[in-house]
């Protein structure tokens, strides 16, 4: 049963990783606009797209 000590610690670390990912994504502004991406993904790609600039670089 002692393996539980290790397992619980591991589970906490994994869960903590998700918590950090959540905080990081909020900080990055991924939840600022919850509508536009849903429309954007439906547009057909044509020719070549030229989205070389990272759009999140200066969002705040």
């Amino acid at each position: 049963m002692e393996v539980l000590f290790i397992l619980i610690i591991i589970s906490l670390v994994v869960a903590g990783g998700f918590l950090l990912a959540f905080i990081f994504s909020v900080k990055n502004g991924q939840y600022d606009d919850t509508y536009t991406p849903s429309v954007r993904m439906l547009f057909d790609d044509e020719l070549t797209t030229k989205e070389e600039n990272s759009n999140y670089k200066k969002s705040n």
Partner: peptide, 25 residues
């Protein structure tokens, strides 16, 4: 949604625009 599409494709209209991003809300 047409507005979003057009405004995000502005770079096709004028080459000096690198990219555009719309926040619809």
């Amino acid at each position: 949604s047409s507005c979003i599409w057009l405004l995000e494709n502005l770079f096709k209209l004028n080459k000096s625009i690198n990219s555009s991003r719309v926040n619809f809300l």
